Measured scan of single mutants.
Amino acid sequence: GFPHNFQETTYLKPTFCDNCAGFLWGVIKQGYRCKDCGMNCHKQCKDLVVFECKK
């Protein structure tokens, strides 16, 4: 597997964290999205993600 390539992201529609399944709250920059596989997560979850990037 590969490490994720997370970038701070502004979501335009309701989005949930792929790590904890919690809602990504806020208006802008609600969470992080992996540029390579599209995984979404909270800032506090991005260092805890157990799934490797599937590129």
Rank of each mutant, 00 (worst) to 15 (best):
G26W: 06
K43T: 12
R33V: 10
A21V: 11
K29E: 04
T15H: 07
G31M: 03
H42A: 01
V50P: 08
E52A: 11
Y11T: 05
I28Y: 07
T15G: 02
C34W: 01
L12H: 07
K54A: 06
D18M: 10
D47Q: 14
F51T: 04
K35I: 13
C41T: 12
D18N: 12
V27W: 07
C34A: 01
N40H: 09
E52D: 15
I28L: 06
L48V: 12
R33W: 13
N40V: 11
Q30D: 03
D36C: 06
P14L: 05
G31N: 01
L12K: 15
E8Q: 14
K13N: 05
L24N: 05
Q7R: 09
G31C: 04
C20A: 00
T15D: 02
D36S: 12
M39I: 09
C45I: 03
N40R: 09
D36E: 12
T9Q: 11
F6V: 11
T15I: 08
C34P: 03
E52P: 11
Y11N: 07
K54T: 12
P14N: 00
K54P: 02
T10P: 02
P3M: 15
C34G: 00
G26F: 02
L12C: 08
L48Y: 13
C34Y: 00
L12G: 12
D47R: 08
N5V: 07
F51R: 13
K46I: 14
K13M: 14
C45D: 12
C45G: 04
Q44T: 07
D36V: 05
Y32A: 08
P14C: 06
I28N: 06
L24D: 02
G31I: 02
Q7F: 10
V50W: 09
C53H: 13
P14G: 03
G22W: 08
K35G: 09
F6K: 02
K46C: 15
G22S: 11
C20V: 00
G38Y: 03
L24A: 04
P14I: 02
F6L: 09
C53K: 06
F6Y: 10
F23E: 05
K13Q: 06
F6E: 03
Y32I: 08
N40G: 10
D47H: 05
L48I: 04
T10I: 02
T15V: 04
R33P: 00
F51W: 10
C34K: 01
F2M: 11
K43R: 10
M39K: 10
C41N: 03
H42T: 00
T9K: 03
D47F: 08
D18F: 11
T9L: 08
